[in-house]
Nucleic acid binder design. Structure first.
Lengths: 236, 236
DNA sequence: TACCAGCGTTACAGATTCGTAAAGATTTCG
DNA sequence: CGAAATCTTTACGAATCTGTAACGCTGGTA
């Protein structure tokens, strides 16, 4: 069942929406400000986020940007809520990546319908929380990877790294890009962290580790059709 | 994910701009003076540079000239920042090749809009990071070359050399010019470095190596329609 | 033919970049 | 708090890249 994250600072509204959605069979997570929202979203990988615009700590716009910046939540649909019918905010909201937009007061029924509609759309197209590439099958909810029915569990960093390597598919990813996406670094640090994690990832992927190709003085390239040797030694 | 290089000696301003742009989904690199700026720019090939005019080490004007001198950064858009609304500086800035200009204090929103505008403009027109000539297809971001769907990977030096040979198309390039563009040499030294790299490049291009023609006592000419023999032996 | 300037080719040492293991730092959780 | 898991840093070796020197080849000239 789909998981929905509701972010609003007013408890009344939060629980009202939550009750309604829970009643329709969704799993509901909640957060009361932008900071919390990001944290919960990263932890639970919701299929959709309902995000209030006016909040303490970190408002909806900022939270939306944050969500869009993290590879785990980059494509999660977001519905924005606002108290006013302010066109400025509406535009800003859509600019930073919200998928839909509603002005308070709104009927719960309408919200529910929009959620249905968006989930139908994104589930059909992207699979939202699942990514499939060749024999690889990533499940964002459980940070799990299957390679043709063999379970592999990764840490969150490893998972983010793999995800960042895979999407968009077929393009080499620069070291700096990866550091930016996975770790949030902005400067050219001369750290070996990336290399270390690449190594662990390759090890955990076993013979499919070869799918992560290195492009010297650029970065790495995920190649789903890499030559796969028939050995199985990955017990370091 | 466009990459933007921010160059300013004041850390506060630098990080303020960086945060804003990172929040909008750009990848951000930073440098605190002109020398560093050139170094980082060469290393990361940003899509745009925000350059402060007043800096230690090497000011904005000098840095701008440096950027325009290197083939990798020659066409990278530059937005200049200055503390005063000094018309002199504005003129100088535009003369040395800046694309836009803003006076401090400025709103981050305006900066963001100008960046959007410039990126839209340059991305549409120049294709910015891709060069196509006959069967050749160079991707500046990833240092990748394709010759009619066959991948060829070059080192960064080889890539710069090939790029310098190709652009502008159809003109013979003098040895001195190439040394200047690729290596930054200013004097016509008696080095054989250029010859060595030409050889390596020809070898990697396989049968298309013939596209690099020697113009005796002048330099080299890239000829996309060079006679291409049907052999494939380049494994010396 | 002999000579010479310009270019091609090869080999090699220093510089970069990457992979790897191990130790230290941090976070998580009972 | 303490232990385990995870992440980051450090150090060093391996692989690759790069500039230079040495020498061979070619075409032009007298």
């Amino acid at each position: 069942m789909e998981k929905i994250l509701i972010v609003d600072d007013e408890e009344d509204i939060r629980t009202m929406i939550a009750d309604k959605l829970a009643g329709e069979g969704y799993r509901v997570e909640m957060a009361s400000n932008g900071l919390e929202a990001l944290k919960v979203a990263k932890a639970t990988s919701p299929d959709l986020v309902v995000l209030d615009l006016m909040m303490p700590e970190r408002d909806g716009i900022a939270a939306c940007k944050d969500l869009r910046a993290d590879p785990l939540t980059q494509k999660t649909p977001i519905i924005m809520l606002t108290a006013l019918d302010a066109t400025d905010q509406k535009i800003t909201g859509l600019e930073v990546g919200a998928d839909d937009y509603m002005t308070k007061p709104f009927s719960l029924k309408e919200l529910s319908l929009r959620i249905q509609s968006i989930l139908r759309r994104t589930t059909d197209i992207a699979g939202s929380s699942d990514v499939k590439v060749g024999p690889f099958h990533l499940d964002k909810n459980n940070l799990r990877v299957k390679i043709s029915d063999e379970d592999i569990d990764l840490t969150s960093t490893e998972f983010k790294l793999l995800l960042s390597l895979i999407e968009p598919l077929g393009e080499p990813k620069e070291r700096g890009d990866l550091l930016q996406k996975v770790w949030g670094y902005s400067n050219l640090s001369q750290t070996r962290t990336l290399d270390t994690h690449i190594k662990r990832l390759r090890a955990k992927l076993g013979k499919y580790g070869a799918c992560i190709e290195t492009v010297r003085s650029v970065g790495y390239l995920f190649n789903e059709n890499a030559p796969v040797a028939d050995d199985e030694n990955s017990t370091d």
